[in-house]
Amino acid sequence: MNKKSVYTKEAPEAIGPYSQAVVVNGVVYTSGQLGLDPNTVEMADGVVNQTHQVLKNVQAVLKEAGSDLNEVVKATIFLNDMNDFSQVNEVYASYFEKPYPSRSAIEVSRLPKDALVEVEVIALEKDNQ
């Protein structure tokens, strides 16, 4: 097994004993990304701004891993409130192109740092297709 950890200053540092992403045999597995600005470590205001920041953080991690949003095959969205689904979905749709990755959206009782949204993805490295 070929396994490597991914780290970039362009996304928030891990807030626990985990990697921003791990690449195994050409597949990128990101950790859940929150709406934290990597420069200020402040949470974006509101679910729309948090979703934009989350996806920017995902993009940064994927870039460091040799991938991008076009290579995402599976996304998982964790929502603090499923009533925010349509707003999150609208922002999400602006970052992805057809064919869209498969996706799950799950309401959870609480997220780290009291975030409103968190996203993790599985993607392919660009050079391993």
Rank of each mutant, 00 (worst) to 15 (best):
N2K: 12
K4W: 08
S5A: 15
S5P: 00
S5C: 12
V6G: 02
V6P: 02
V6M: 00
V6S: 01
V6F: 02
T8H: 06
K9V: 00
K9T: 00
K9I: 00
E10I: 04
A11L: 01
A11C: 07
P12C: 02
E13F: 02
A14E: 03
Y18A: 03
S19H: 12
S19L: 02
S19T: 02
S19G: 02
Q20I: 10
V23Q: 06
V24F: 11
N25G: 14
G26L: 09
V27T: 15
V28L: 11
Y29F: 13
G32M: 07
G32V: 01
Q33S: 09
L34W: 00
G35D: 01
G35N: 03
N39D: 05
V41Q: 10
M43P: 06
M43N: 04
G46W: 07
G46I: 13
V48G: 06
N49V: 04
Q50R: 06
T51R: 10
H52N: 09
L55V: 04
L55K: 01
L55N: 05
V58Y: 00
V58T: 08
V58L: 02
V58N: 00
Q59C: 07
Q59G: 05
Q59P: 03
L62M: 11
A65R: 02
D68H: 02
D68R: 06
L69C: 11
L69S: 06
L69H: 14
L69Y: 07
N70W: 02
N70A: 13
V73F: 14
K74G: 05
A75F: 12
I77L: 15
F78Q: 12
D81W: 09
D81S: 14
S86E: 12
V88Q: 10
V88L: 13
V88M: 11
E90H: 10
V91N: 10
Y92H: 07
A93M: 14
A93L: 13
A93V: 00
F96G: 10
E97D: 15
E97N: 15
Y100P: 08
P101A: 14
S102G: 13
S104M: 14
A105S: 15
S109F: 07
R110H: 12
R110D: 11
L111N: 10
P112W: 09
P112K: 10
V117G: 02
V117H: 06
V117F: 06
E118C: 11
E118P: 00
E118K: 06
E120G: 07
A123R: 09
A123G: 09
E125A: 08
K126Y: 03
K126F: 00
